[in-house]
Design a protein around this nucleic acid. Structure first.
Lengths: 130, 130
DNA sequence: CTTGCCGCTGACGTCAACGTCAGGTTTTAG
DNA sequence: CTAAAACCTGACGTTGACGTCAGCGGCAAG
């Protein structure tokens, strides 16, 4: 596959793929004329990279943990790294859940007309229907 | 309260607070000499702002929804905005959960010694002590 | 041969949420 | 009174994951 095909299938830009290669996240072989060529797994790998970026990992961190994905083997350091990132994501989910709850509370507050302070209802029409 | 106190209590930098003010997220009164003074609620507001930043909202978006927190009232537009951001956070949590699962799978794969492909054990000396 | 698309390599631009530094005033502690 | 700490206003610097532009090469169709 050429770079444009991978980009289309993984829904990322061509620029992003070159950047991933530059960061050591994605390998490619080269045709005699210098064009990149990708193996089958490339699309899946790019999707994985995207997920990890989306979870807030940096290129550097991803570069550190991808080899152990490839080799299916982990050193003590890589195990620690994997666990640390997993926990980070855990905490991130927890905080997002709290923030969502806050937003829900705001939605609740602002959507429900406020009975004891409802300057939108005219005097003489207090307590109509609940 | 002065800016340093708020910063300490909310665990953010002084620079951040000035930036929030610049973005219209945080109001302050001024002493005659020009120093900022904050009311009690400021610390809580800053924490809310931080949560929203943490959930990926931009200054602009926060600025759009904070007034409706203050007024306890929502217009149709603000309701739509609140709902949209809530849903974004929902999707974000879902994606993070998927990514965490991927990481868990990787941890599982790399932690468990792979019996049919264990090139780390030498032939003839399987199962020795280190 | 030419047109046109795809790909290549630099290399500068972007954007947001601050960090940091300069240079000056104010407040506080002793 | 004085020194330190805290505050002020600009204004430039930082960082990461790309976007974008310039200029060039290669190659299949017509």
């Amino acid at each position: 596959m050429r770079i444009g095909d991978v980009a289309a299938l993984a829904a990322v830009s061509v620029r992003a793929l070159r950047y991933y290669e530059e960061q050591g996240l994605l390998a490619s072989s080269r045709s005699p004329s210098g064009q990149r060529h990708y193996a089958q797994g490339a699309v899946e790998r790019v999707k994985l990279i995207q997920s990890l970026y989306g979870a807030g990992l940096s290129s550097r961190t991803i570069a550190d943990l991808l080899p152990c994905v490839d080799a299916q083997v982990s050193t003590p350091e890589s195990r620690a790294l994997l666990a640390a990132e997993r926990d980070r994501i855990d905490r991130q989910i927890a905080e997002l859940t709290r923030t969502r709850a806050k937003l829900d509370a705001i939605i609740e507050q602002t959507s429900r007309p406020n009975p004891h302070c409802d300057y939108t209802t005219e005097p003489g029409r207090v307590e109509a229907s609940t």
